[in-house]
């Protein structure tokens, strides 16, 4: 473990920025967002960014390829290029976990090279949550916000930042920072971890649990009468899916620029009425079906296909942003039987 005093944070950032583009949460009028660090940019104190960190690996839109057409001929132009190295600082434990969930989708055979390209060139520096909020329920999904994963984990105390490398990538970066950081004992960060742990245990949603969901619960939950009430007021907008760090559904669309065709991928939302519209018709016609799909996917289908891993990380963004305040916590409580009631 290494440490650096908080008044030398700028030095730390400038040192990291020497070798790779550095992103970190900064404050704006509309909450925190990830931005490129440059001299003068201050690390935000906010608990989390408004948008999730998934954008780094799975951006909202990206060009997949270009086509040039001439007469009856088509030329496919591979526009991929090797991504530049980058470092993301201050990613919270929940968002770090979301990368693992996305990995299992995009890195599964056949590998999505657009995702893999960025994933391989990104270094994640996580940060423990000193002040978890009332909307946090990462603990429900086995995430410990006092022990975040990532390539390097960090803990911020009143006067210092502790850094601990968790992967090879992390070790390489941390050793490059050796001359500006000082050695620290693991025990030095313990009081901070203990404080966070104690706070996490007292959160209002700390008792939320998942035993009613997961592998094999499909048929039990699919026809539950509760879906009707839960989905009743859903507007069918895409807010929850777009702020969610684990939602990864996408659409591939073509855009005719007048001098060629660009095929791009963009986020899509299973909440949209046209989401499953195919030539033969639409598979999910009612908002109830679409609403159910989203939560069943996170709580049942995904774990069924991925060794019980849930595709929710409890970051609480949907709680904050849903226009009508319907969210996964309410769904879990309503469907989760007595324990969550």
């Amino acid at each position: 473990m290494r440490k650096i005093s908080l008044d030398k944070l700028d030095l730390l950032f400038s040192e990291i920025a020497k070798s790779a583009k550095l992103y970190l949460p900064v404050d704006t009028d509309n909450g925190a967002k990830y931005d490129v660090w440059e001299d003068g940019k201050k690390l935000s104190d906010a608990l989390n960014t408004v948008r999730s960190a998934k954008d780094f690996f799975f951006p909202q839109t990206e060009n997949l390829m270009d086509f040039k057409m001439s007469g009856k001929n088509i030329e496919i132009i591979d526009t991929r290029s090797e991504c530049e190295d980058f470092v993301v600082f201050g990613v919270r434990a929940c968002d770090v976990k979301s990368f693992e969930i996305l990995d299992r989708v995009f890195l599964a055979d056949p590998v999505d090279t657009f995702y893999k390209n960025r994933r391989e060139h990104g270094v994640i520096i996580s940060m423990a949550c000193n002040k978890p909020a009332e909307t946090c329920f990462c603990k429900t999904f086995g995430i410990d916000a006092s022990e975040p994963c990532g390539d390097i984990a960090t803990w911020k105390t009143d006067d210092a930042l502790f850094l601990d490398a968790k992967t090879e990538k992390g070790e390489k970066l941390l050793s490059a920072l050796e001359k500006i950081t000082e050695a620290a004992k693991d025990a030095d960060a313990e009081p901070q971890k203990a404080l966070i742990k104690e706070r996490l245990a007292r959160l209002p949603l700390a008792e939320l649990e998942t035993s009613a969901f997961g592998n094999g619960k499909t048929n039990e939950l699919f026809n539950a009468p509760e879906w009707k009430d839960l989905s009743e007021s859903c507007l069918g907008c895409g807010t929850c899916t777009f702020v969610c760090p684990t939602c990864q559904c996408y659409d591939i669309k073509d855009f005719n620029t007048g001098n060629g065709v660009k095929r791009f991928r963009c986020w899509d939302s299973c909440m949209y009425s046209e989401f499953t519209r195919m030539a033969h018709g639409n598979n999910r016609l009612s908002q109830l079906e679409r609403f159910r799909q989203r939560f069943m996917h996170k709580l049942v289908y995904y774990p069924t296909n991925n060794d019980g891993l849930f595709s929710c990380v409890g970051c609480g963004r949907c709680i904050n942003k849903c226009p009508i305040n319907m969210n996964i916590v309410k769904v879990m409580k309503k469907l989760g039987g007595k324990k969550n009631g």
Binding site: G238, V243, E274, P323, I324
Partner: peptide, 23 residues
């Protein structure tokens, strides 16, 4: 982020099929 929340909450946006949904 084109989440369409503004459109979907809007009491004036009541088209059965919005032009922005029509492929």
């Amino acid at each position: 982020i084109r989440c369409n929340a503004c459109r979907d909450i809007c009491p004036a946006c009541t088209c059965e099929k919005c032009v922005f949904d029509n492929p």
